[in-house]
Design a protein around this nucleic acid. Structure first.
Lengths: 348, 348
DNA sequence: GTGAAAGCGCTAACAG
DNA sequence: CTGTTAGCGCTTTCAC
């Protein structure tokens, strides 16, 4: 505090933050010595070390990462681009990635793409300008691999790939998960299984739709799907279309968390009991899935594993400089709860 | 791609990213001209502009933010320190803050403190070193204001203050929220209202505890509290202590989201119907609060508003250089659902 | 052990 | 309109 006043009084520079040279002068040593001190203090006599240290303390000096980076040092910062942190899947992923980054002494520069290729591009540009050491990316469906050509740092994709890009990628087994889900419903004896989903351009959606379709076809059951459901309104409309008449569905495979919840809520509003009126099986587990009445069966993705793996791959690649890329697909888990206990044997 | 090979062949520097000077040489112009181009392209002839632009394109050049910062420019980056992004409250806050930052062309450097003052310190240090333009902070209970003395950028606290620090702060009205919650239960005729909470060192917890206590005292009701509940196990133990005997509680005010859910789950496990066995009113709304059976009443905090306000204050302060600080307390909302409909009039 | 000096990539005066 | 030239804060030889 004294010093702050002092600085102003001597009107040296202006009231900006102290630089290494300020510390050097303050301690009566050369710049190189201060540099040595803040880099481990090796090859410095105890006397000078103490002097420099106290000068740093008094001035409240913090070395500028920017200046260090200029000299080619790493920025100790990785980028993370996701559609939104408000989405619990990506929030969990971000937390896991941050843990890994933190363990490596890195900070995370977070950018939201909103699934918009244009925004995504802008964010990538900003990250390149900041010279991040690496990037973890959940690409939009129209992501352009060329942006990363000249990036100068390794990139790992997770949750979704960039088609035709030579980038290591970590995915959940969307196709397998959808197959497992649908197969389970088939085995339970359901005959009219509706696939309810949205955002058909998303890689994950497509895989899940296909998984459902393939199992249905193989089982010789009628293919029923509503693939444009993106909010409560459209979910309700879709449901109404399939809940009445002699051809009413007896089970619903919902490919998205929010859709699953919509279906649950709509069923209550309509006074339809799950699983008596129809079975429900969702994609992605959620916190209160087993607190609902009935508890909802789901395909659970290993979110933390996916994100952690991606982060580990990134640091591995950052350290090794290895250019090779790989595709990792992590298995999902079928969590059977009461919402799809078995086809009704008797009709009311 | 051609260029990449070319660079290697001519072994100029090494395979590092192109710099402004590379562009200048490539385009046959001076450094200043390139600088002008990447800063808006004013005062540059169409011919040179085109030449430089195409050179930039070919080389895949991106100006280094680090070098710019060295010259005193802003980093266009703000820091955000929260306990964890995995917490939905802070995830929502982060999303809101990011929106504001994005609107100002800024990126967010995210750091997790885990409520640990030591980690928090480290994160602040790393952010100072990166010369962020501003910081938004949800401080740990033992946060040290002195860290930020020499930071060189404005800071805004949200959700919790740093005691005795001259820092603008945006809070939810925890005391008022707890009062409103407890008062509602009192008005409904409940007589034995238990306050269930944990993390008693957290500012938010303390305010909520006090709000409950003050209303209870004023109403002349017995003060009942279990303030060390931090997981399912301890919640169950606490509940068991107060659910039996002639002195059983008839209502529970839960001061934390997760605790509310625990109480709900435990009540189902025990076969106790809410609100017949006891009423339940929680703090912080959650997605499925109204999908549960019964729907849970809560105090809803304006999360997005709090975060947005904090971010706006920050940018305001960054732009004005204003050193003054303020305290903003945002009102909360009582969401009445079926979990505390009114005291039972008849005993079974 | 320690200091002087040369850049790292960029911007901001100045000259032309 | 355009090029030259200082630095910004730091690391890193290279002498002393």
């Amino acid at each position: 505090m004294r010093k702050a006043t002092h600085q102003l009084a001597t009107k040296e520079k202006n009231r900006s933050v102290p630089a290494l040279m300020d510390v050097a002068r303050h301690a009566g040593v050369g710049a190189a010595t201060v540099s040595r001190v803040i880099n481990g203090g090796h090859n410095v006599s105890p006397r000078t070390l103490a002097a420099v240290l106290s000068a740093i303390q008094e001035l409240g000096y913090h070395p500028s990462q920017a200046a260090r980076s200029l000299k080619g040092a790493r920025t100790k910062t990785i980028g993370l681009i996701i559609p939104s942190v408000a989405d619990s899947f990506f929030a969990s992923a971000a937390a896991a990635i941050q843990d890994v980054a933190s363990a490596h002494g890195c900070l995370v520069l977070l950018a939201a793409s909103d699934n918009d290729p244009v925004k995504e591009r802008e964010q990538v540009t900003m990250l390149i300008q900041r010279r991040i050491d690496g990037l973890i990316l959940a690409p939009s469906d129209a992501a352009d691999a060329n942006i990363l050509k000249h990036a100068g740092f390794p990139t790992i994709c997770f949750d979704r790939p960039i088609k035709g890009a030579a980038i290591s990628t970590v995915l959940g087994d969307n196709y397998g998960g959808a197959r497992a889900a649908t197969a389970h419903l088939v085995h339970q004896g359901y005959k009219r299984i509706l696939c309810l989903g949205g955002y058909p351009r998303l890689f994950t959606s497509q895989r899940r739709f296909r998984g459902h379709r393939d199992v249905i076809r193989k089982a010789g059951l009628p293919y029923l799907a509503e693939l444009e459901v993106e909010d409560y309104i459209s979910a309700e409309a879709a449901l109404l279309r399939h809940l009445n008449g002699p051809n009413a569905v007896d089970a619903i495979f919902s490919t998205k968390n929010s859709t699953t919840v919509y279906v649950y809520e709509i069923s209550r509003k309509l006074g339809l009991r799950i699983p008596d009126a129809f079975a429900l099986l969702g994609y992605d587990d959620f916190e209160l899935a087993d607190a609902l009445e009935p508890p909802i069966s789901v395909i659970r993705q290993p979110v933390a594993d996916i994100a952690t793996r991606a982060a580990q791959l990134l640091f591995q690649q950052m350290e090794s400089g290895d250019e090779s890329h790989s595709l990792t697909t992590l298995g999902v888990e079928l969590i059977v709860r009461a919402s799809c206990g078995g086809a009704r044997s008797t009709l009311p």
